[in-house]
Amino acid sequence: MIKVRFFTLLKLYLGINELIIEAKVVKMKELIFLAREKTEKDFVHKLLNKDGTLKKGTIILINGKNILHLDGLESIINSGDDVDFFPPGGGG
């Protein structure tokens, strides 16, 4: 079981706070598409470019660690992990 949480703009867009994905081991890109199967609206285009690379703007954390310090979209997520999608506020 993997807990996926959406924050701020993504949460407002999707109308949900979190999802549970029943998987034992999955890569980040696969997790995004598994989550998409459970949401009413498509959000993949907000996270990925057309060529499948990661789009700028959203911080993605696995257990609090930025995936760009892991293996990016190839990062491994295990059952019990928490994944957070967080577009942060930039203004001051």
């Binding site: 789009k55 703007g57 959203t58 911080i59 930025n66 506020g89 930039g90 203004g91």
Partner: peptide, 21 residues
């Protein structure tokens, strides 16, 4: 900078109001 990797700084000006600030 490690925490905030993958930011997009190109969206300017940032929408903001007094209540949130």
């Amino acid at each position: 900078s490690d925490i905030f990797l993958n930011l997009d700084e190109n969206t300017r000006p940032i929408p903001i109001s007094a209540d949130s600030a």
